[in-house]
Simulated assay, not measured.
Amino acid sequence: MGSKTSNTSRQARIAEMRRAEQARDRRNKIIAITVSVLVLGGLGGFGAYVLNKKADQVQAKEDLVKKPVSAEQSWDVKKLGRNHVTKAVSYPMKPPVGGDHNPVWMNCNGDVYTTAIPDVNAVHSLEHGAVWITYNTKAAKGDVEKLAKKVKKTPYTLMSPVDGQAGAIMLSAWGKQVSVDGADDARVDQFLAKYVQGPQTPEPGAACTGGMAAQ
């Protein structure tokens, strides 16, 4: 009789332990599922945030491109020529925005030149879809430094000093040019958005590396 009682008690304990283990397994599964849902929900929310932010950035750039650049000058580049020449060229504007030019382009993959560069090589860079930011001695040092940082982060751009230009800071693309008031002028970003590899580019996708570097 005692043996039967002991056996029954042992079986009861085993059954209780199994029930406790099953309950623990259920709790762990519920916790795992809950955590997974929260993580996926968080990732989904973060992903949606990133996508929305990217869409806003694209829309902002499209808005910049659609608007005309205030006080921008344009030239009929068909009248300026696009021949490759090895001689000096006299351009009707300073800095030049097009015309005959040297067969070798200035490197324009975010290149910042601290001394003057040859116009005939820079014009070739414009033909490849680059934007050339130039400044003279009237430009504030802080503006020059800010613009240099922007250029270094922007492919198909180059920057250099140009003595004798009309504006303190000027931006030039193939057939396009504008003078701006400073590095924070909204037209800087607008001009870059419109004309870096923009529709005015005679040779879109042409190289901005492998050309002439600083001398």
Score class of each variant (00 low, 15 high):
37 V>C: 15
37 V>F: 14
37 V>T: 15
37 V>M: 15
38 L>E: 04
38 L>H: 10
38 L>P: 12
39 V>R: 02
39 V>Y: 06
39 V>Q: 05
39 V>K: 00
39 V>P: 08
39 V>G: 01
40 L>Q: 06
40 L>Y: 08
40 L>G: 00
40 L>F: 09
40 L>D: 02
41 G>D: 10
41 G>C: 03
41 G>P: 03
41 G>F: 11
42 G>C: 10
42 G>D: 06
43 L>N: 05
43 L>P: 00
43 L>C: 00
43 L>D: 01
43 L>A: 03
44 G>T: 07
44 G>R: 02
45 G>S: 11
45 G>K: 03
45 G>E: 01
46 F>H: 00
46 F>S: 01
46 F>V: 00
46 F>P: 01
46 F>I: 04
46 F>R: 07
47 G>A: 05
47 G>Y: 02
47 G>E: 04
48 A>F: 06
48 A>G: 08
48 A>Q: 05
48 A>R: 04
48 A>M: 05
49 Y>F: 15
49 Y>V: 03
49 Y>A: 02
49 Y>L: 13
49 Y>G: 04
50 V>C: 03
50 V>N: 02
51 L>E: 00
51 L>R: 00
51 L>H: 00
51 L>Q: 06
52 N>I: 06
52 N>Q: 08
52 N>C: 01
52 N>E: 02
52 N>D: 02
52 N>H: 09
53 K>G: 00
53 K>D: 08
53 K>Q: 08
53 K>C: 00
53 K>T: 07
54 K>Y: 07
54 K>E: 10
54 K>P: 01
54 K>C: 01
55 A>M: 13
55 A>K: 15
55 A>W: 04
55 A>E: 09
55 A>F: 12
55 A>D: 09
55 A>I: 09
56 D>I: 12
56 D>A: 15
56 D>L: 14
56 D>V: 11
56 D>H: 13
57 Q>L: 11
57 Q>H: 04
57 Q>N: 06
57 Q>D: 11
58 V>Y: 01
58 V>A: 11
58 V>E: 11
58 V>R: 09
58 V>I: 11
59 Q>R: 15
59 Q>G: 07
59 Q>Y: 10
59 Q>D: 13
59 Q>K: 15
59 Q>F: 11
60 A>E: 14
60 A>R: 13
60 A>D: 14
60 A>Y: 10
60 A>C: 12
60 A>G: 11
61 K>W: 03
61 K>A: 12
61 K>E: 14
61 K>Q: 13
62 E>T: 12
62 E>W: 07
62 E>K: 14
63 D>Y: 05
63 D>N: 13
63 D>M: 13
64 L>M: 11
64 L>G: 05
64 L>C: 12
65 V>W: 03
66 K>A: 15
66 K>W: 06
66 K>M: 11
66 K>T: 13
66 K>L: 14
66 K>C: 03
67 K>H: 08
67 K>F: 04
67 K>Q: 13
67 K>S: 08
67 K>Y: 06
